[in-house]
Design a protein around this nucleic acid. Sequence first.
DNA 1: TGTTAGCACTCTCCTACTGAGAGTGCTAAC
DNA 2: GTTAGCACTCTCAGTAGGAGAGTGCTAACA
Lengths: 345, 345
Amino acid sequence: MLTERQREVLKAIVAEYVNTAEPVGSRTLARRHNLGVSTATIRNEMADLEEMGYLRQPHVSAGRVPSDHGYRFYVDHLMEEDRLTYSEQNLLNEFIYSGAREADLVLATASRLLSQLSSYVGLITSPRIHTGRLVEIKLVHLSQQLVLALLFTDNGQLENRVLVLPPEVEPEHLETLAAYFSCRLAGRPMEEITGRLLDEVYLELLEEHTLSHNLVTQIAETLMGWLKAGGRSRVFTGGTHNILAQPEFQDLEKVRHLLALFEEEALLLQLLQREPGITITIGRENRLPVVQNCTVVSSTYTINGRSTGTVAVLGPTRMDYAHVILVLEHMACCLEETFSAQDDN
Amino acid sequence: MLTERQREVLKAIVAEYVNTAEPVGSRTLARRHNLGVSTATIRNEMADLEEMGYLRQPHVSAGRVPSDHGYRFYVDHLMEEDRLTYSEQNLLNEFIYSGAREADLVLATASRLLSQLSSYVGLITSPRIHTGRLVEIKLVHLSQQLVLALLFTDNGQLENRVLVLPPEVEPEHLETLAAYFSCRLAGRPMEEITGRLLDEVYLELLEEHTLSHNLVTQIAETLMGWLKAGGRSRVFTGGTHNILAQPEFQDLEKVRHLLALFEEEALLLQLLQREPGITITIGRENRLPVVQNCTVVSSTYTINGRSTGTVAVLGPTRMDYAHVILVLEHMACCLEETFSAQDDN
DNA sequence: TGTTAGCACTCTCCTACTGAGAGTGCTAAC
DNA sequence: GTTAGCACTCTCAGTAGGAGAGTGCTAACA
């Protein structure tokens, strides 16, 4: 267990290092944080903290730097709550009151704002519509070739799309087909449906020859393409350039790997698949090798009470944790407010 | 005017420099390209070419590097057609036959592919639906609160969206409103409509008290939000990390500015607002200061015979122009094929 | 026993210097 | 008009040296 003084030293070192990005020595610490003891004593404490794994020394005649464990301890036990400045608050307010409602635009803006407020990279996953269960699929005939497909879920979400079908399609085909899909899929969770369930149902459909075969195949395929595409969660990345200002990202090779990651939506989605509430993964705690010298802080956001997406900040392990957490909490609220206000998709 | 030998020297220098990224000296040139003359002669020609502004010398004892003018002359007069390798052809085929149809996914993939095939950055603007003229706006009542809004243009494009409206809405309101908008806007180019025309019509509408005021306002606002959002062209950027491998982008500050640019959709749209066919802007020929040490090569792609979007590659001025042009031409075809095959939006 | 002053030691970083290498322009000869 | 030869210039990589920062250890002190 750490003594009170060791905790203070660790806390001071984290604070100092987060600020300056330079290894902190005993002298700096004694000068800037009045710990009430001499540099020699601090040196002893630092040596102990290093032995316990909370600090690292880049080289023998440099100051100390918090290790992943050190940050972990700081986050779990030492961190104090932060407050937003007025100008930060203003930025968030502007964002809320901008009146933008279109999901793409809101999330892209939000991820950039996240970056601006944290000076790291902002990441946001689009709300998963696929949290609910399917209630019904409707196909509405609009004109000879145009059909409106509607999909209702039990949590009030709605997906829609106009499909273009072959001219031979007749209304009763559509009805049968919609009824078939609705019947087979109703009550099932959306995740399951967009996964392999849909394929199964499709195969079964092909074996039932109650409908003019060719046509059904075409319609079903169009329908399936739509359902699967809708199931795709997207990730919005904002402010990648901001991270280049951080001294730990002066290495081009590192930056390259990160930028490559930001274009791999599948990997990002995996990275952002997180527990509700604030979650912090520091350095090696991350599974993904590329981000093992980074920290990812995330929060989930909810729409109408259901948790549906993740807002996150990715930055160096030397991160202003308290501030990032605060920003994420506020952003989660903003998104909730923006999206819950109405049911527009 | 350049002599035949000067043209050969310039061509050889461009080829060499594009390959090696090192200033090319007279000796290298004599060895690798058999120009049939001695290094001294080449030196004389180089000095002349420099005087005419086609070459630059980074410092007095270095080789020569093509200037923006040099590249321009090369592109206009010296460049030879390139051919795709089998593996490149394969990548493109895979892309076409992947069967993806959803615009977002296709364009994101395409921009990455563009980057992969060029090793620079791929940029693609989403197809402008707003090239045509409005034919009609339809509002179809689906259920008590749900209304399907449809927008037809004279070039066969179709936008649709389900709007959620207040429960008091009645079918005749919708009809009147749709008729009003259709009547006032029909025949007008979409660009105009999503611009200030819509605002004007909206204001006029507010002054006509033929409709229950409050309700109309709400519907009209929802409708307008949709129209304006639909007018927003998007830009897909792919392979930003690839550019970091280029020696001209070792400077972090440069990279930062570029990355920042890639998040400024408005600027990108401006940059990608280009003439039909292949367009090349080299270095200082670009208006945007950030890209004045870059080259942007673009092609427009057409859907059903109408040019609607831009595919482009952004890289260093030291670029394999012939290859990039080739890749862009092929990509434009791919997109045309993908999107024209059906009318799905 | 915990704290502190003093000191030798280590390591990085910056600067200056040097020599090798590459490439040029010029001159004179072909 | 072309070429060989040569003096000159500039960069780059490697090396050496000194300043600066920080440590760990020891011995003295409260």
